[in-house]
Simulated scan of single mutants.
Amino acid sequence: MNYTFFKKNISIIKKFIPDTLFLRLQYKYHLGESLNLVNPKTFNEKIQWLKLYDRNEEYINLVDKYSVRKYISKTIGENYLIPLLGIYESVDEINWDDLPNKFVLKCTHGSSSNIICKNKSELNIKESKKLLQNWMKKNWFWYGREWPYKMVKPRIICEKYMVDESKNELKDYKFFCFNGEPKIIQVDYNRYSGHKRNLYDINWSYIDASIGVPSDSNVMIKRPEKLDEMLKLAKILAKNYPHVRVDFYFSNNEIFFGEMTLYHGSGFEIFKPESLGGKMGGWINLNRKKENV
C-alpha cells in the first residue's frame, strides 16, 4: 500500500473501507507499525480495540459537547460548567451582534473546531462563518472510526471566554483515568503559540516524557491549588469506564469541566519513550470487555 496515496485520497476512499482495515492502515501510516488486535498491549493498540469492540451507548452523550453538560450537572454539579451563552442548530442562527466582545464558539460533534474570540471588533466574521459551515458538514467518525461521533448531532455552542492566572490563555489539565483511577496528568499550554504538553503524576511530580506534542522540562507548571478536588472529580466521572481522559480548566481559583475524551489522539500519537505507551496500555483492562466480543 502506498500510504502517501492513501492520505491524499482518504476523503474519497475512507467510506468504502471496513473499520478494522481502515484502522490497520491508519495505524501503519501514523506509527509505522502493524496493529495487533488479537493481543493488544500498548495504549495505542488498546484504543483501536476499544473503538471496534467497546460499544457503550452512553459514549454518544459523553463526546457530544452539549449533551455532556447534562451528565456533568447530574454527576458533579452544574457549578463546574463553563457558562453557556448560546446553542445553535446552524451557523445562520448565530446573531453575532448579540455576542459579547469575548467568547468561544465550539462545534459539539468533533474536535479542534473552535473559534476563540478575544476581541469581536478584530474578528473576521465572514471567515468564521465559513469555518463553522465547513465543520458542521463534517462527520468526525470517518477520520478515526471513533464510532460515537457517527451519531452526534452537529450543533454549535457559545461559551464564556476565560483565562487562567497567565491572563492570556487557559491551560488544559487532562487526567488520564483507567478503571476510574487517574494515573497521569497532561497539561497543554501555549496551544496557539508553540504548543507544549507537560506530564505529571498524581502527586504533581514531572514525568520526563511526551505524548504526541513535545514537553518542556524548563517550564515547571505550578501545582493547581485545587488539584485534589480535580482528582476527586475525575474519579467520579471516570468510574464506569475502562479508560477515559477527563479535562478541566482552572480559572479564578475555580474548576471548570472541559470534556471527556475516550480515544486520546485517536490512538495515533507517538509516545516518547515508547515504554510509556506500554505502561499506560497495561492500565487498560480489556478482560471484561473481551468476554462480550
Rank of each mutant, 00 (worst) to 15 (best):
M1Y: 15
Y3W: 06
T4I: 07
F5S: 12
F6K: 03
K8P: 12
I13Q: 00
K14L: 04
K15C: 14
R24W: 13
L25N: 05
Q26K: 15
L31S: 12
N44L: 11
N44K: 10
N44Y: 10
K46W: 02
W49I: 00
K51M: 02
R55W: 08
S67C: 08
S73F: 00
I87E: 14
E89L: 04
N95E: 01
F103W: 11
V104M: 08
L105Y: 03
C107F: 10
N124A: 12
N124I: 12
K130R: 12
N134H: 09
K137M: 12
F141L: 01
Y143I: 13
R145Q: 14
E146L: 01
Y149E: 02
K150F: 06
K153N: 12
P154C: 11
R155H: 01
I157C: 09
E159S: 00
K167L: 11
E169W: 08
D172S: 06
F175C: 03
F178D: 06
G180I: 00
P182A: 02
I184M: 05
I184V: 15
V187F: 03
D188M: 01
D188R: 07
D188N: 15
R191M: 01
S193M: 03
S193W: 05
R197C: 13
N198Y: 00
N198K: 04
Y206G: 07
D208L: 01
P224E: 00
P224Y: 02
L227R: 10
L231D: 04
N240H: 05
V246A: 03
G258M: 14
G258V: 08
E259Y: 02
T261K: 08
Y263S: 06
H264L: 02
I270Q: 03
P273T: 06
N287A: 15
R288C: 01
R288E: 07
K289W: 08
E291I: 15
N292E: 14
N292I: 13
N292Y: 14
